[in-house]
Amino acid sequence: MPNRYTFQRRLPYLLLAPSVIVLLALILYPLAFALRNSFWFWNLQTSPMPLYHSGWDNYRMVFQVTPFAVALKNTLLLSFLGTFAQFWLGMGIALLLHTHLRGMGLMRAALIMPTTLAPVVAGFLFRYLLEPKGGLLPWLLEGIGFPVPPQGFLGNANTALFSIGLVDTWQWTPFFAIVLYAGLLSINEEIKEAAEVDGAAPWRMFWSITLPLLRPIAAFLVMIRFMQLFNSFDLVFVLTSGGPGTASRTLSFNLYREGLVNYNIGLTAAMTWLVVIIVSVIINLYLFFIYRKREW
């Protein structure tokens, strides 16, 4: 029956179609909107409609009017350092959990709590903890003689971005720990036992056996987390609002400021496309380097 056969062949695409169509509409509209308006002067405070064609002005203005380069540098710094710290701290904790001593199951279950919080709530937690006058952390640190900046860690240009990274690390290290622990459990014990019989030292086993076997999971986790950090908005919004000055401004926060505070729609549109291009380059570079080799 040719009809039935064609139907069967088309069925998966028919089933995918509704979600793909909805998602395409939801993505293409903003991208097309941004592409068009990136060549128009339009400030929502002065006009409900685009005012005049402005050529490439918006793209030039992104660099002249907004601290785009600083935001890009901050974003990359935050993403690289944050992902690196969270991965290795999480790995350390996963190895501790993997000792299977009594109580580890319970601790593993409790450990996920920071990851369940809305990033905004995590931000409030630490804003309170880091409050320069009356916050617990500055008080404890001063108690052991650690220098605390008078404006607090969030108000100091040298420590603001670092503090955002710390809060994100607090929130997402448990995620790495728990998923990497699940990865450790899936490693065949016999391989390790064989290496042990051959007299391999523990650290050697970790580098040569455990880590390579975790690579598929690790590559996935690192990509997801790097991009989530790259998109950081909620934490920046609550902790520092990108300040002091532009010390902790990220690309997402820069977009928010121009778009939803200053209502510079044209300029935001140009910035949107710059960010989309940067994100695509990063993802494709990552996929190229990590997934180049088919076998792990």
Binding site: L16, V20, L23, L26, I27, Y29, P30, F33, A34, L44, M223, I224, M227, Q228, F230, N231, F233, L251, S252, L255, Y256, G259, L260, I265, T268, A269, T272, V275, V276, V279, I283
Partner: peptide, 24 residues
Amino acid sequence: FIMNWYISLLIAPPIVFVIPYFIL
């Protein structure tokens, strides 16, 4: 490709979409 396309949406910066949605 389709699976990766879904993932790419999950890791795209949401703020990029939000501002046009606001006008829409």
